[in-house]
Lab assay of single mutants.
Amino acid sequence: MIINNLKLIREKKKISQSELAALLESSRQTINGIEKNKYNPSLQLALKIAYYLNTPLEDIFQWQ
């Protein structure tokens, strides 16, 4: 199971779900699903999230 700190990191950087979704060329619903652990992002999307949040991938997503 993958757990994530996306919501915590996103809020700390003062970025809304909609703003992050626009940067990622994704939907706000996708970001919401990832944050609620209802959806696991593809590797490509996970890497883009890490890039746009300027945060190491392993700080956002962790195996448990």
Rank of each mutant, 00 (worst) to 15 (best):
Y51S: 08
L45R: 00
Q64K: 13
L8F: 11
S42F: 03
N54K: 12
I60W: 03
G33C: 15
Q62W: 06
P56E: 08
Q44S: 13
S27K: 10
F61W: 05
M1V: 09
I2K: 11
T55D: 01
N32Q: 15
I49G: 00
L57E: 01
I3W: 07
E19P: 02
Q62R: 10
L53K: 00
K13L: 13
N32P: 01
L23K: 11
M1K: 05
L43V: 10
K13V: 08
N40L: 14
L43Y: 14
S16M: 05
N54G: 10
L45Q: 07
A21E: 01
L57F: 05
A22T: 12
Y51A: 09
P41S: 02
P41L: 06
I34Q: 02
Q17E: 04
Y39K: 10
Q62G: 08
L24V: 15
Q29F: 09
I60R: 00
L8D: 14
N5L: 06
I2H: 09
L24N: 01
N5W: 07
A46S: 06
E19K: 13
A46V: 04
Y51T: 08
L8W: 09
N4G: 03
Y51W: 10
T30M: 14
K12T: 11
P56N: 09
W63K: 03
L8S: 15
N4T: 04
P56D: 08
I31K: 01
S16Q: 04
R10C: 11
S16N: 05
E11F: 07
I2F: 11
L23S: 10
D59S: 09
A22Q: 12
Y52H: 13
R10N: 01
S18T: 13
R10V: 04
Y39D: 05
L6W: 00
Q17P: 03
L45V: 06
P41T: 08
Q64L: 05
I9E: 04
I9F: 09
Y39A: 09
L47K: 12
L53E: 00
L8P: 09
L8K: 14
N5V: 06
Q29D: 14
I2L: 13
L20I: 02
W63I: 04
L24Y: 00
L6K: 00
Q29V: 10
I34R: 00
I15K: 04
K48F: 04
W63E: 02
K38P: 02
E58V: 09
L53I: 02
Y52P: 00
Q44W: 10
Q64W: 07
E35Q: 02
